[in-house]
């Protein structure tokens, strides 16, 4: 009797060869990820290849001031006669650089702090209260203050946007660590004498990757918006650099007569952020249905 059971089990184990569909094919099957990343790809290419399409974004042409969109100047011109189309294409570079840089830096810092908070009891309270404190300072105000203290450069703007983004990443990583470390398979690894660095890298870290990739897209989107708001308020990157926020900031005075100065970069920005957000939502649905319900 016992032997029959075991043979059945053996056969069963060999026969039930259900292959796990790969993550890549899952992602390609997701329409949101496909369209979002296609759109994003176009924006990135346009930003990189901007010089091929357009004139100099900073060349002044006082005769053609505040011209509406036309065949010659697709998006019109601003109060110095600069070509808004050219400025918008070049502006994409700033937004993308800020978005990607902030996402990478914030996720890296957040990952380290989150792991420490989740695994080192003594530091947990200190780190988490600090994060609570940081979270209670409105992000834009914090960024404004940091920039007004250390001067506006691309670098300080990135740092100023990173700092308020970190706490959410820390909380996410810590939450994952606290859940996973209670899992029986982690306890089994502890019981098997696996050392802490291996437990972290083998059993805990892989669980943070999916939520962090999703979080990275949201951080990237939020960073691009914050950068544009800082520029718009006149507290961002130096005005001579054609970032979307700066272009729109300069357009404010002339809004009633030349609304295109704000609209075109505004739409470009909204579409870029939308593309990133759509990719984020798609990734969230594909990578982990559990977080999908939480967010």
């Amino acid at each position: 009797m016992a032997n029959v059971d075991q043979d059945d089990l053996m056969a069963d184990a060999i026969l039930s060869r259900k292959e796990n569909p790969g993550v890549v094919s899952l992602m390609l099957n997701n329409r949101a990820i496909f369209w979002g990343s296609s759109l994003l790809f176009v924006f990135v290419m346009v930003a990189i290849l901007a010089p091929l399409f357009t004139a100099d974004p900073v060349s002044i042409n006082p005769i053609n001031r505040l011209k509406p969109p036309s065949a010659a100047t697709l998006f019109g011109t601003d109060f110095l006669g600069r070509d808004i189309f050219a400025r918008t294409l070049y502006g994409a570079r700033i937004s993308l650089v800020v978005g990607i840089a902030v996402a990478i830096i914030a996720i890296s810092i957040g990952l380290v702090l989150g792991l420490v908070a989740g695994y080192v009891r003594v530091l947990d309270a200190v780190i988490m209260r600090t994060m609570d404190g940081l979270m209670s300072i409105p992000a834009i105000l914090l960024a404004i203050a940091l920039i007004s203290l250390s001067g506006a450069t691309l670098g300080t703007v990135i740092v100023a946007i990173v700092i308020p983004e970190v706490p959410r990443v820390v909380r996410l990583v810590r939450a994952v660590v606290l859940t996973v470390r209670e899992e029986p398979y982690v306890e089994a690894a502890i019981a098997a004498g696996t050392k802490l660095p291996l437990i972290l890298s083998r059993h805990i870290l892989p669980n943070t990757i999916a939520p962090l990739i999703v979080q990275a897209t949201y951080v990237c989107a939020s960073a691009m918006l914050t950068e544009s708001i800082l520029g718009f308020l006149g507290a961002g990157i130096p005005p001579e650099i054609p970032s979307w926020g700066n272009i729109m900031s300069e357009g404010r005075t002339y809004f009633q007569i030349s609304p295109w100065i704000i609209f075109f970069p505004g739409i470009a920005l909204a579409l870029t952020v939308l593309a990133v957000n759509i990719v984020g939502d798609g990734l969230r649905d594909t990578l982990d249905p559990r977080i999908a319900r939480k967010m």
Partner: peptide
């Protein structure tokens, strides 16, 4: 909600 997270608040205002 995705669109709401994507449109910069001042662009929306001016529109």
């Amino acid at each position: 909600s995705v669109a709401g997270f994507s449109v910069p608040i001042f662009v929306l205002g001016y529109m």
